[in-house]
Design a protein around this nucleic acid. Structure first.
Lengths: 225, 225
DNA sequence: TGTTGTGAAATTGTTCACAGCC
DNA sequence: GGCTGTGAACAATTTCACAACA
């Protein structure tokens, strides 16, 4: 999936994927430090709050340039601002929740998005019992209004929490409406044009990874008959 | 680089982390194939359903031994059974949900766990309004009963869906009760003894990773002043 | 002195390409 | 002829270790 098109003259992909996935950890850590009134932080401290090691922190941050002060550390507000800029969340991004079941409801009422730079502004479902209801201050629209809601609300990210059978169709509709990023909670592969970024969160897969380690502890692996 | 540690009586062959996280994808794909009545599958087909490439599939599966037939492919039921054995989910594993808010409710009612090898058997919360209620057929117990519920129900995995402020204390309690694996949804680092495996699902972080790519498209990155 | 920034080394992961087998 | 299994080449990522410097 990574490693694409090193075209000369165009964006010379320079920040490693592995670094990108750690950026949110630094963001979270820096917000906590900032809230606590800390004005500087060393790579060692930041690493311990983020749960990584100090060399990685320094290497990761170095891709943006040199913001630290040798002998002192990093300026917390400045680094926070820098990380936000690189994450593209200096201004809030609008999101839509597609599928307002239990998971969709959790997403619509989740308190943790706002200060991380996201605003859930719309929701749709196909179930007539849900359409028209309000969840977390958002009125649930009908699936057929998806295109309009996306366009009217300047939605750029979709949270896809439908049953797996509906996921591909919904994804197609989202792409047609102009959504460029999809966070897919349905346990199925969804296809999208390559300019649309899809990330998958499969809860059962996460449990399976934990179970793998459980299994290692229990016993020797006992292969199937 | 030897790559092999032929220690007698010890862990026979180390399976790479990168392979482990793909195992659930193969599991999901094989279940779909099995349900569809397919009896064999090539690495190419399996790859396309799982969303990876064929070389990776073959390499990953080769860590378990040789189960394919050259010129034919893999036997679906056999490979499914093999993958399940390695994932440690030949028998179902019991889980507890800690924190029965909207996210906890989604986890308690999620239909997708059962056929992936997991059974949510208990839930706890601290809110008196929630304790005693039934969600998804499970009675929500009080946080103080956590230890008892874990032991009585042979719980090995916890789904931690409390607010971040409570997460560390809950994790400590879970470890004390004997839980060996934690799936942490709270956006904070939790510390646990190294024999306890913790995986983190931070929804806001996932959105930030999407936003990073959005930002790349919008414009040049505009660093903070 | 204490801490960053970074080349270089070590490690881990991916892809290639083809021999071996059905 | 088709497809697996796998060494070997390649690529990405992590870690080391230390010079630079406020």
């Amino acid at each position: 999936m990574p490693g694409r098109t090193p075209e000369p003259g165009e964006d010379p992909r320079e920040i490693p994927d592995a670094t990108i996935v750690r950026l949110p950890l630094y963001h979270r850590a820096l917000m906590a430090l900032d809230r606590a009134g800390e004005s500087t932080v060393s790579s060692e401290q930041l690493a311990s709050i983020a749960g990584v090691n100090a060399a990685k922190v320094r290497k990761d941050l170095s891709y943006f340039g040199s913001f630290g002060t040798r002998g002192v550390g990093y300026d917390v507000p400045q680094l926070l601002s820098e990380v936000r800029a690189h994450l593209g969340i200096q201004r809030s991004r609008n999101c839509i929740v597609v599928g307002a079941g239990h998971l969709g409801t959790a997403l619509l009422t989740f308190a943790g998005f706002a200060d991380r730079g996201f605003s859930v502004v719309a929701a749709v479902d196909v179930d007539p019992d849900r359409v028209g209801s309000r969840i977390g201050g958002i009125e649930v629209g009908h699936q057929d209004d998806l295109d309009r809601l996306v366009r009217e609300n300047d939605v750029v990210i979709a949270l896809l929490s439908t049953p797996p059978e509906a996921a591909q169709q919904v994804a197609d509709d989202l792409v047609a409406a102009g959504v460029r990023s999809i966070l897919n909670f349905a346990p199925t592969l969804i296809e999208a044009p390559e300019e649309v970024v899809v990330r998958n969160v499969d809860l059962a897969s996460e449990l399976e990874i934990l179970a793998f380690h459980e299994g290692r502890r229990d016993n020797e692996v006992a292969p199937a008959s």
